[in-house]
Amino acid sequence: MFKIIRREEMSQGNVILNEIEAPKIAAKAKPGQFVILKANEEGERIPLTMADTDPAKGTITIIYMVVGKSTALFKSLKVGDGFQDVIGPLGKPTHIEKVGTVVCVGGGTGVAVLYPITRAMKQAGNRVVAIIGSRSKDLLIMEDMMRAASDELIVCTDDGSYGHHGFVTDQLKVVMEREKVDQAVCIGPVPMMKFCSKLTKEYDVPTLVSLNPIMVDGTGMCGGCRVTVGGQTKFGCVDGPEFDGHQVDYDELMMRLQAYCEDEKRCYERFRTLHAAG
């Protein structure tokens, strides 16, 4: 069992942080890599990016949004409980290099995925401007951590309840207008990544995005995580999860993410009913 040693709720309980004992994975993990977790015998294999690792303590940290049955089940786990299976580190690490100025854009729980990359980009000697956004103030996560990991942090909310009023793309544009940007990293909901990439293309800024296709094994043996990049089929779990944002077929990804939506709803409803019944 992989024990949970710390648990925090954020974003009105919609986003959960778990620090988990997994010494082998912690020793090896690099920014951009993910793990697959399975709560119990009947559980599904769920991919989540490592938001942080502590090799000395032998722990990894995951931050996830509760969107369905499996993440709701994860949420129900307390400190001292654990995951039956944690597999990783999976996926290619982010290519970290000193390129000059890097803009890191995160939306929603994408910020959790973005955090270790932001930190590594700064450690590599880049000037890092971070832009994070959410629908409203109380849904914003990891503001302080992102501020510490970057040279400048720009916050925005869709409803204007905090920071700039508007979308992360607006602020991305402001930054690219104001200074020369050598690299962008955009992580968040698929439409956000799509629009960020469209914008950075106009400014000719190389852009990395992190894709979240449906996965099973995470080792390249099933092909369930197929994404089209530059007209070619790639496996998200082993060829990614990061890809050149200007080459990704986002519409196909959005479509494929809907593959099981009816089943997922049914499964979540059932869980809520059973859970309510105690």
Binding site: E42, G43, R45, V216, M221, G223
Partner: peptide
Amino acid sequence: LSANEYLTRANLMKAYKFPEVDTP
């Protein structure tokens, strides 16, 4: 789906018992 994915869902993940198990 590749047969690998289909059979892994069915056999390893026991998806034929969905929604008693979580994998569809």
